[in-house]
Design a binder for these strands. Structure first.
Lengths: 233, 233
DNA sequence: GTGACATATAAGTCTGACTTTTTGGTTCCG
DNA sequence: CGGAACCAAAAAGTCAGACTTATATGTCAC
């Protein structure tokens, strides 16, 4: 998905990051830089760079005379795409997927409403195209092709909202949707009702009907929540 | 607000980070590590660590034989608390404040709804206490004391939602609220209607009335949007 | 027990030498 | 004139070793 292990320190991170987010080193654990350097067979400089990155993600804290201590999960920068990827790859996957889906359910309806106001003609066209692609691949076990258009649809919505914070959640939504198709539920063709909703959202955005776009998108996200058994009846 | 410049590389970051987020080095600009090291009068190792951190924030990209190039704003990790702080401190402040307020308006109502379902007795008590503190300081130019309780109120809501992604937005909300009091509008006492809404939200959460908590919180955030002239009438 | 002091420890810093990748120009041939 | 192969320089990347600094902890006197 993203560029892996740029350089030596990157490869160290690819190994150490997932280990920490997976709880392999529980909060409070103390690591020592030169010991890690030996373990990973890299120089101290390289290991120091890796530790600095982990520190900037608030995964660890480095203090003199103590070492590198692992922080509690509650302090991690959970919006860091790298951290999200590490957690989705490990044992935290279910919880991460749930919390991200709840996040989606809060953001996307508002984003769709804003998109209805601010989307460019080009974005409206893209949206319609995506919706068409979804319909075309909604039957006959063409899940991969469906996913491509589904992902593109939601990315366009987020981008068209005109809000930079929303736009940057594109990668997150991509991960969640891909995860759902590849690992979780979704063995059969997608719910026809959901497909229809996407088409209607595209319509609403095109017509500039913010309220309708928001309401319809909320229905989509409620569906996503129900798939994961979140939300009491 | 947060720990400043831990170590030498931290002080470099405190200088370089804001410079980049302020657009002082426009996207595509090329920096050279050893030149920077000379400018900042630090060793190459220290500068390399700083660059690694900037790289992990997607502010820059480091490539062999070319140097350290500044990335376009659209690729920055805008949810990194450090990046947010840097942007709030610079010329980007107004735009950053707006996009964060829109983000709040999406998140907080949902968080309040969840809080109504999942808040512990202790959290309910805290919430009530905060609301009382807000009322007590809502008149007579006691803005600072009011702010403290306002911030605490919203942090408790986010934490009580039980969603880790929401909880981690506590710092962001704190920055936005503090920014509003210290630099933007808000010369007079807070809007009495807003104060009442907070009290009612506390009530709704205590009673477990998710829908009411959500709706009331939405009214609060709409008020915040209006203060910044976001949202057409 | 409390305070001052000594000590060991691990991170932090600096320097210099070396390696590797990549860009951009140069040359040579078709 | 154009393209392919090649070469050289530039900048990041890596490593090793020596030194500095902060600080947690243990010790000792009172």
């Amino acid at each position: 998905m993203t560029t892996p292990g740029r350089g030596l320190h990157g490869r160290v991170l690819d190994s150490l990051g997932p280990a920490i987010t997976a709880g392999e080193y529980p909060p409070g654990s103390v690591l020592r830089t030169d010991e890690l350097a030996k373990d990973f067979e890299v120089s101290r400089s390289v290991m120091r760079e890796a530790v600095r990155v982990l520190e900037s993600m608030h995964l660890v804290e480095s203090r003199r005379r103590v070492g590198v201590t692992v922080r509690p999960k509650s302090e991690w920068n959970v919006y860091d795409p790298q951290v999200i990827r590490w957690r989705l790859a490990g044992a935290d996957r279910p919880q991460q997927l749930r919390s991200l889906t709840v996040l989606r359910s809060a953001i996307e309806p508002i984003a769709a409403g804003l998109a209805a106001k601010f989307a460019t003609a080009e974005q409206c066209a893209e949206l319609t195209e995506c919706a068409i692609g979804m319909v075309a691949n909604s039957r006959g076990h063409k899940l991969e092709a469906y996913l491509v258009h589904d992902v593109a649809f939601h990315r366009v919505i987020l981008a068209a909202s005109g809000n930079e914070m929303f736009a940057r959640l594109g990668d997150v939504v991509t991960e969640v949707l891909a995860g759902r198709t590849h690992h979780e539920v979704m063995f059969e063709d997608p719910d026809p009702a959901a497909v229809t909703l996407h088409v209607q959202v595209a319509e609403a955005v095109r017509e500039g009907d913010a309220l309708r776009a928001e309401t319809l998108t909320r229905e989509i996200t409620v569906g996503a929540l129900q798939e994961l058994d979140i939300l009491a009846p």
